[in-house]
């Protein structure tokens, strides 16, 4: 039963993976809204800046981005530990994809809702925050759920910039023991379980948003 002896180390790695994933999802989420709203409502210059940001981070590989940040940040005088670099890379990447989710959902709000808001003489800001965002938030949630899972999976790449996450631990153990089957099977199961938990959390948030926005599913009374 030597597989039990791998568990403590793998569990430590899983904790690092969970932490990095969580922080990146939160920061990435904030970036998503900032860039997504800027693209739809920001005026010409903010919209262009947001467009460049999303295209660059969606158009290149996360792994290339991570290596690039790893080598580039010190050159401009920003020396971070690998964990911070990993979180910056993952957050920027998630934010780029999330911005497209936010943009799509904002644009999907029916035109009639905007007309009604205009007929009631709401300001643009009021329309955005009280009419458009509450309705589109519900639409965004399933896509954000997928983005969260993607972020968890992609977090494995930070092992390649020497962060001791779950994948990194697995590599270390396998190099010591050469017991590939056991180590990688456990690792895959570990990620799968974390993904299930993450999906459940995202569904819970979706339900809270749905209740917050108070969309009764009931048909016509």
């Amino acid at each position: 039963m030597n597989w039990l002896s791998y568990l403590p180390s793998l569990a430590q790695g899983a904790l690092v993976t969970a932490e990095i994933t969580f922080v990146s999802i939160v920061i990435g989420g904030l970036l998503s809204f900032a860039a997504g709203i800027a693209r739809v409502e920001g005026g010409r210059i903010p919209a262009f800046v947001a467009l460049c940001y999303t295209e660059i981070f969606r158009g290149t590989s996360l792994l290339v981005q991570l290596f690039w940040l790893y080598y580039a940040l010190p050159l401009i005088g920003l020396s971070f530990d690998p964990v911070t670099t990993g979180i910056i890379g993952l957050s920027l990447h998630a934010g780029g994809y999330g911005a497209e989710i936010v943009r799509g959902a904002l644009l999907a709000v029916p035109q009639q809702q905007l007309e009604a808001a205009r007929a009631l003489n709401f300001s643009r800001r009021h329309t955005l925050f009280h009419i458009v965002l509450p309705q589109s938030l519900v639409e965004m949630m399933p896509a954000f759920g997928n983005l969260a899972i993607d972020t968890l999976k992609l977090s494995s790449l930070v092992s390649l910039i020497s962060i001791a996450d779950l994948t990194f631990r697995a590599q270390s153990i396998r190099n010591l023991t050469l017991d590939s089957t056991t180590v990688y099977t456990l690792t895959l199961i570990g990620y799968f379980l974390m993904a299930l938990v993450l999906a459940a959390i995202m569904r819970l948030i979706e339900r809270l948003v749905r209740r917050g926005a108070a969309f009764p599913k009931a048909a016509h009374a």
Binding site: I149, R174, T187, F192
Partner: peptide, 9 residues
């Protein structure tokens, strides 16, 4: 639900 990198390894 599992990373490409780990599947690759």
């Amino acid at each position: 639900d599992t990373p490409l990198l780990v599947q690759l390894f």
